[in-house]
């Protein structure tokens, strides 16, 4: 018995070493190292770039700080967040005139609730002006106009009277928490104010379930969660699991680098950008 075990152990160790050597000495060389937030479309985008080593962080802010520390060359993030971030963290430069790609934010909807998508799409259409105003005030950092949103206590026995929204409230200006009112957390952000608007239109109480971003999409339809609003990009993969509303915002993915990094200054097109950050894939 012991002999068998030690044999297995030996084989495993050998295999482990082989893989370790393969990845160390391997043929792939990296042109650059890019920081992204875990579970975001930026991460997916970065992963398909050739010759790029992707480092995933819990938050954009961590990625940006790590770039300032010199551990990654640049960060790929959503444009809105990039701008919010660079106004708060000094020493960042957002290459926002050249979007790497653009993507549509949608509201994730429980596919089991067939009528809900129609209702939400109707509200997005009818209340387009209000929604635009919400977006504008956050984009322009019009702090005084922000309206805090509070969450009702979740009550699964009153599912019909409550709109339960999954979010990852660490994502200004889309959703974040700040302070308390009546003993409960107060939420701000574009998504939060739109969620409140939708709940009011549906004549429901708003319940905000703040969780890790990795769980937001998967949570829809579970534990009473009706919709997800967390700056979620509509993708084919996500559409397999949940429904989406019509897009309510078109977001670009942009590159953020250190303020003193001049490599991108002469870039005019996406191709210029990509030549700097990754390897062309013509060999394939």
């Amino acid at each position: 018995m012991k002999k068998v075990l030690s044999l297995i152990l030996a084989v495993v160790l050998c295999l482990g070493c082989t893989f370790a050597f393969a990845s160390c000495g391997g043929g792939e060389t990296f042109v650059s190292k890019v920081g992204v937030q875990k579970g975001t479309t930026s991460e997916m985008y970065a992963n398909i770039l050739k010759g790029v080593k992707v480092a995933s962080y819990d938050t954009f802010a961590l990625a940006a700080n790590d770039m300032k520390n010199g551990n990654v060359d640049f960060v790929i993030v959503d444009k809105t967040t990039a701008n919010a971030l660079s106004s708060q963290i000094s020493g960042l430069k957002v290459i926002d005139n050249i979007p790497l790609s653009s993507e549509n934010y949608g509201i994730g909807i429980d596919p089991a609730q067939t009528a809900l998508k129609g209702q939400i799409d109707a509200i997005l259409e009818n209340k387009a002006a209000e929604i635009q105003a919400i977006k504008d005030k956050y984009m322009n950092d019009d702090t005084d106009a922000f309206v805090g949103v509070t969450s009702a206590a979740k009550n699964v026995d009153n599912a019909a009277g409550q709109l339960v929204v999954a979010t990852n409230a660490e994502f200004a200006p889309w959703e974040y928490a700040s302070g308390a009112e009546d003993g409960g957390t107060v939420y701000y952000g574009i998504d939060m104010e739109i969620a409140k608007l939708i709940a009011d239109e549906l004549n429901m109480e708003l319940v905000i379930e703040d969780m890790a971003f990795d769980n937001v999409v998967g949570s829809v339809g579970k534990q009473g969660i009706d919709i997800a609003m967390s700056g979620i990009t509509i993708t084919a993969e996500r559409l397999e699991v949940i429904n989406f509303s019509n897009p309510y915002y078109t977001e670009s993915i942009v590159v953020v680098c250190k303020a003193d990094d001049t490599r991108f200054d002469s870039c005019g097109t996406v191709v210029d950008l990509l030549t700097i950050i990754c390897v062309a894939s013509e060999e394939e």
């Binding site: 954009f60 802010a61 971030l85 963290i89 974040y176 957390t185």
Partner: peptide
């Protein structure tokens, strides 16, 4: 949460 509004 105290750092989220400003990413600091």
């Amino acid at each position: 949460q105290l750092g989220d509004p400003t990413y600091n």
